[in-house]
Amino acid sequence: MAFEANQVYINIPVKNVDASISFFRELGFEFNADYTDDNAACMVVNNNTFVMLLVEEYFQSFTKKEIVNAKESTEAILAIGVNRREEVDTLVEKALDSGGEASSDPVDHGFMYVSSFQDLDGHLWEVMSMEKKI
């Protein structure tokens, strides 16, 4: 039997947790108040996937490695799947209107449509719609 996680938690460093909460709320995300405080915010992607937005100093307590400045370097691209192409464009437009920055031009692969943005801290987010789900 292949390994199957029952939940996924993605942890990313942020400079200002309150500003990050406001940004992602503008995109339509909700937060779990039980796991949100001055150091961290638990953003709910779906019932089994969460993004922990951790203040840089708190994030640093979990690793001995240097934190990457996401505005200058990239360690990961966070991708979110939505149901329709229109949702891709809507979410990216909301991100840009809420203070995010453009990342790259939309790409239509036929079976998959992708667009992207950078959040307030420079983390790269892709939004995609695929005809066939993984």
Rank of each mutant, 00 (worst) to 15 (best):
K64I: 13
E87I: 09
V82P: 01
K65F: 01
I77Y: 03
G81K: 08
F62T: 04
E75P: 05
T63W: 00
T74S: 03
A76H: 10
N83T: 05
K64E: 03
V68C: 07
N69R: 06
T74A: 10
T63M: 00
E93D: 14
A70C: 09
E87G: 11
Y58F: 13
E86P: 10
K71S: 13
I77Q: 04
I80E: 04
K65G: 08
Y58S: 06
E87H: 05
R84E: 11
E66W: 02
I80H: 04
F59D: 03
I80N: 06
A76E: 05
L78I: 15
G81A: 14
K64Q: 10
E75Y: 04
F59V: 04
Q60A: 14
V68F: 04
N83S: 12
F59G: 04
Q60C: 08
S61W: 00
F59A: 05
I77G: 14
D89I: 12
I67M: 02
N83A: 14
V88M: 01
Y58M: 13
K71N: 15
A70E: 13
R85T: 14
A70T: 12
E75G: 12
L91S: 11
A76D: 02
T90H: 10
K65W: 00
T63L: 00
K64A: 15
S73A: 15
T63F: 00
D89K: 12
A76T: 14
E72I: 09
L78P: 00
E66S: 08
K71M: 11
T90D: 15
V88T: 10
E93T: 15
I80Y: 08
A79M: 11
V68M: 08
T74I: 12
G81P: 00
A79S: 13
E72Y: 02
V88Q: 00
E86I: 09
L78F: 04
D89G: 11
R84I: 06
L78M: 10
A76S: 09
N69E: 13
A76C: 12
S61A: 07
E93W: 02
G81C: 10
V68S: 08
Y58N: 14
I77V: 15
T74G: 07
V68Q: 02
A76R: 05
G81Q: 07
R85N: 09
T74C: 02
E86C: 07
E66M: 11
V82F: 01
S73F: 04
V88E: 01
E87W: 02
R84V: 15
E72H: 04
E86M: 08
Y58A: 10
Y58Q: 11
S73P: 00
V88S: 02
Y58V: 06
E87L: 13
R85G: 03
